[in-house]
């Protein structure tokens, strides 16, 4: 992509509302890497929850809104493999093809595939373990890209998560419709996280992190959940600090 790419940030409704620090970190990171970042105010939600729960008709206008809102950008970056998957894989079925859908990238894909960087100049002196979320892994196929990015972070003590590719049990409305099964899956995921001795659990999706983090918080484990973007945005000059 020649020159400074004009990037549209799709924050996702969950991150916009509950985890603004993640979206601010994406802005900071992409601008540091030379992108022009814009946040079109018309954006709301990709419609995934409606679609996956069986309410297709409610998701359809949201796909249309997305196609219109992000029509003019070189690329759209979303800090979510799940919403990214919804947009790239499902929106065309709901709305017909649109450039905004094919130009949408999950953050690690955009960094590694489009910008061609793995060392983003980050510094994060903590013990970290990484959970590859199901949709980034199996719907988008991001593979090891997030781990490549994390390995290049200075000061990080990155430890492998046992049974990493097992679902954490979130699954959108699955977490409430089948709360008992979801919680059983969560329990095993938390055990694996705690086994690593990491003080930070990272992932590319705040939805899964909210689920695992909700369990870790309930048990007062002291493990912090943190989106990949916030680790990558952290530098020696301006290191990450808890915002709440």
């Amino acid at each position: 992509m020649p020159g400074a790419p004009r990037v549209g940030l799709f924050a996702t409704c969950l991150t916009d509302t509950f985890f603004p620090a993640t979206a601010r970190a994406v802005v900071r990171l992409l601008e540091r890497l030379g992108c022009t970042v814009e946040f079109p105010m018309e954006q709301t939600c990709c419609g995934q929850m409606h679609y996956n729960t069986g309410y297709r008709d409610a998701a359809r206008p949201l796909a249309a809104d997305y196609a219109r809102t992000f029509a003019g950008y070189d690329a759209v970056v979303a800090p979510s493999g799940s919403c990214g998957g919804m947009i790239r894989e499902v929106h065309p079925e709901l709305h017909g093809s649109a450039p905004a859908f094919t130009h949408t990238y999950e953050l690690s894909e955009f960094l590694v595939d489009v910008l061609g960087v793995t060392d983003v100049g980050a510094y994060f002196p903590h013990r970290v373990t990484y959970h590859p979320t199901c949709h980034s892994l199996r719907m988008l196929g991001v593979g090891d890209k997030p781990l490549e990015l994390l390995r290049a972070v200075r000061g990080i003590d990155l430890v492998a998560l046992p049974e990493a590719e097992s679902c954490c049990g979130f699954g959108g409305t699955f977490a409430v419709k089948n709360a008992d099964t979801s919680t059983a899956m969560l329990g095993d995921k938390m055990r694996c996280v705690l086994d690593t001795g990491a003080e930070v659990l990272s992932a590319g999706d705040n939805s899964c992190l909210m689920h695992i983090g909700g369990g870790l918080s309930r048990l007062r484990t002291g493990v912090t959940t943190l989106h990949l973007a916030e680790i990558l945005a952290s530098t020696e000059e301006e290191p990450w600090a808890p915002t709440r």
């Binding site: 509302t17 509950f18 919680t183 969560l186 909700g214 369990g215 309930r218």
Partner: peptide, 14 residues
């Protein structure tokens, strides 16, 4: 029943 919810922040990203 099994998980906490993070408190919504005072200021959304937008």
């Amino acid at each position: 029943a099994a998980r906490d919810v993070p408190a919504p922040p005072a200021e959304s990203f937008r």
